[in-house]
Design a protein around this nucleic acid. Structure first.
Length: 263
DNA sequence: ATGGTTGCGAAGCAA
């Protein structure tokens, strides 16, 4: 099973690129964030033409998440209560084949200490609570998306330059770690210990070409899935060319064949 | 140097 996540920064603006990438990268499941569209505008037919079912949780101008799957979609959940709903259309879950997939767009937080920052910490805390209530770390569970937190200093281009900024504060990292501590593994870090692997680069100032980015888009796998993960990468080529998103897709390959028919 | 760029939507906000 090939699974990917991509903050597309408007699916309306990015649809041609997303469709081309689906055809090229051939993921079985693609989680999208920041679709920035209402459910009525979601281009389900375009995905269907490529053999994918899709489910979308949108609100219009901001946020919006989707799961696109050619392994089927079951048990779709788009309402989770509390901050997970109040913060906007930021979370969507569905079973794709044997895997319970979550597409997440964690609030940005804006400024450390702001009300938006508090909401971000609460969102992450409630995400962990939702996992506790709804499933088990012994099951095949994936939580992926734009976490808007760089887990460690090696995940940002220059920790000193970002001191005091959002995405790297101890509070945010602890809140993300609490999600991981439920029983999830950061897939890319299981393969790539080095610094310099990023998934987001500011549009401004040529940040991408200066390699001034952060790794904030994560694929988090429960242990049974992490044990079967054979590849994890950021497709940074998707940050190049005409009208890119400011995020690149993150992709993993999971060897689920040995699980039998349900895999 | 509070800059710079993109998207939405039609000015300013969010990221």
């Amino acid at each position: 099973m090939r699974l990917a996540t991509w903050n597309v920064n408007s699916l309306g603006a990015r649809l041609p690129r997303v469709l081309a990438w689906l055809a090229e990268a051939q993921p079985d499941v693609l989680c999208l964030q920041e679709t920035k569209m209402a459910d009525g505008a979601f281009p389900a037919e375009a995905f269907a033409e490529l053999g994918y079912e899709a489910t979308h949780h949108g609100q219009g101008q901001w946020n919006g998440v989707a799961i696109v799957s050619r392994l089927g979609l079951a048990e779709v959940q788009r309402h989770f209560g509390g901050t997970l709903d109040a913060a906007g259309a930021r979370l969507l879950a569905a079973r794709c084949g044997s895997v319970l997939v979550h597409s997440v767009y964690v609030p940005n937080g804006r400024e450390v200490g702001s009300e938006h920052f508090v909401e971000k910490l609460r969102f992450l805390a409630e995400l962990r609570s939702h996992l506790e209530r709804s499933t088990s770390p012994e099951d095949l569970v994936c939580v992926c998306g734009d976490m808007n937190v760089a887990p460690e200093d090696r995940d940002v281009w220059d920790p000193a330059a970002l001191a005091g900024a959002t995405h790297v504060s101890p509070e945010e990292r602890q809140a993300l770690q609490a999600v991981l501590d439920w029983g999830l593994v950061d897939a890319l870090r299981a393969f790539t210990p080095a610094a310099g692997v990023h998934s987001w680069w500011d549009y401004r100032g040529g940040a991408f070409h200066k390699r001034q980015g952060m790794r904030i888009d994560l694929v988090l796998l429960s242990r049974p899935l992490a044990e079967r993960c054979r590849l994890a990468l950021v497709d940074r080529n998707e940050r190049k060319g005409e009208r890119p998103s400011d995020h690149a897709p993150v992709l993993v390959d999971l060897a689920l064949d040995e699980l039998g028919p349900s895999g």
